[in-house]
Design a protein around this nucleic acid. Structure first.
Lengths: 101, 101
DNA sequence: GCGTCCAATGCTGTTTCGGTATGGCCGACA
DNA sequence: TGTCGGCCATACCGAAACAGCATTGGACGC
């Protein structure tokens, strides 16, 4: 059952939320950027940390600071989002070319 | 707004569903493999096709056959899932090393 | 025509999720 | 020291999403 069982409970939404928070170092600001409010975004981060079984941010007085695990995850997260983006574009390209030509 | 807006409505669940159906060429069988029933899985595929704006499968009498767009997406889909898997493992490794050592 | 196998759809109960309101923490400032 | 302001976390609630059951509809084999 090694498969990709771990993937199951991680969601792209959580990954996007994580990246936004990592870049803003501030949940409220990241929330606005994602057209969301602070509480659900805060929960996204908690859920992600829970799913991964590791703390990704240090909660400081001024906001959120990446922990080593978070920095490691950030690199993967960006790659994942880029990969998804590429997948979408590729499909549209293939389908578009065949449909249009 | 180019960003990764397209990522938004695609979910890892849908991607996993897609891969399972692509490999089984049969929704019911894929559903069982995913510990799901046929109707929701059928809807996953429809939702994914809708989000991507392209048909991924040809519905044949005997089941589901990948269309060119689907084959292209499959390659990306596998990479995405592998990437997520790697991300999870990396985080656990980093956090584990620091926690344990 | 009838039974079979397949995917798609209607419906419903449950779960998930986002938003509002609030709490708790901590530093700045007078 | 007391108040204010910024920050993340939590409680609660209404709405949307989701899975499962039951059923439909299409296509082949007998």
């Amino acid at each position: 059952m090694a498969d990709s069982a771990r993937v199951a409970d991680v969601s792209l939404t959580h990954i996007q939320s994580f990246v936004a928070v990592a870049e803003e170092c501030n949940v409220g600001r990241a929330a606005r950027r994602l057209h969301l409010t602070q509480p659900p975004l805060s929960r996204h981060i908690q859920a992600l940390e829970d799913e991964l079984g590791a703390r990704l941010f240090e909660r400081t007085r001024g906001g959120m600071r990446l922990l080593p695990a978070g920095e490691a995850f950030l690199r993967h997260a960006r790659r994942i989002l880029a990969e998804v983006d590429a997948a979408v574009l590729t499909v549209r390209d293939v389908a578009g070319n065949r449909a249009g030509g």
